[in-house]
Every structure is written in structure tokens, then in C-alpha cells.
Amino acid sequence: MEGADERAPGARQMRPYAADFVTRTTARSRLPLDYSVASLRVVDALVDGLRKGGADRERVRGTLFGLGAYVGEVLVRRAGGVWVDFDEDQRAYFGQSVGVRMPDGRVWNPVGKVHNRFEAGRQESLQTFYLVLHGRAGRTAA
């Protein structure tokens, strides 16, 4: 990631941004984007579809950001996270301007994680990301 997009929404705008993305994405389809942990499999499949379709990363940047906002909102709703604006060091490290702070104080970059899935494929599962960070990977069937 070359750096944070200066036009990207801030932490306070991420919840409505994710909701708008879901509305637009599901308007013509019945994708089960319901903010459940299980719906992260759908996000994995959507990103894989973009990859397999040969999409250029720049061309799908907005879609990837929207999917990252959705993943972050799942962390907020299901794991008690909170959207935060990254400080200068965090922006430099993550290449994004916003992320999610978990109740234990750890900060995560769901937008970057979606970009990683796009670049690396299956090894960067978004559902596994949630389960590992929330401590459930070993107890949940794939």
C-alpha cells in the first residue's frame, strides 16, 4: 500500500460508510452482508472473485476499501471494537488513516487486511482474521 488516501473517511464516518457500502452492494443481489462473523466468508469470496476476474488493484480500490470498512464494522459490532483515526506513525505503518481498536487496546487494520487478501489470496482469510484475533480459531470449524 503506497499510503493512506487523503480522501478516505475518518473514524466517525466509517460506520455510515460501511452501511452505505452494504446498501449499494446488496441492492441488486442477495449477498448476506449482515455483519455476522459468518458473512466474512462472503467477503473472502468477493475478494477472490475480484482476483480471479483479473481486476487491477487500482480499479477496485474503492470496492476493497468498502469491503475493509465492512470487515471493520464486523469487528466493531461483534467484538467490541471501536473505529479510530490512526496517528502519524500508525498511518505510516498501516498505510491507512483509520482502523479498529479492540477492547484489549490492540489496533487492527481491516482495510489493509482486505488488500492483503486481494494480493495474497486464501492465506489471508478475513474470517480467520476475525476468529484468530478474537481467540476462537481453534474452537470453530472451517
Rank of each mutant, 00 (worst) to 15 (best):
R117N: 14
V100S: 03
L50Y: 09
Q13W: 11
R7V: 07
A18G: 14
V71L: 01
K113L: 00
G68C: 06
S97C: 01
V98N: 01
A69W: 01
R117S: 14
R59H: 14
V60R: 01
R28P: 07
V22N: 06
T63Y: 07
T26I: 04
L40P: 14
F86I: 01
P9K: 05
G138C: 10
P110M: 00
R30G: 15
G105I: 08
P9G: 11
T128R: 13
L131K: 07
G121H: 00
V37R: 02
H115T: 08
V43D: 08
V100H: 01
Q13L: 14
T25H: 05
D56K: 06
V111F: 07
A141V: 12
G49N: 08
S97H: 02
V82F: 13
L64W: 05
E6R: 10
D44G: 01
E73G: 01
A55Y: 11
R59V: 15
V132T: 11
G62S: 15
G3N: 04
L75S: 07
V84Q: 00
R91W: 02
A55C: 14
S97R: 03
M1N: 12
V37F: 02
K113C: 00
A142F: 13
L40Q: 12
H115A: 08
N109A: 13
Q90T: 12
K113S: 02
N109W: 09
H115N: 10
V60L: 00
D34C: 03
G72M: 01
Q127P: 06
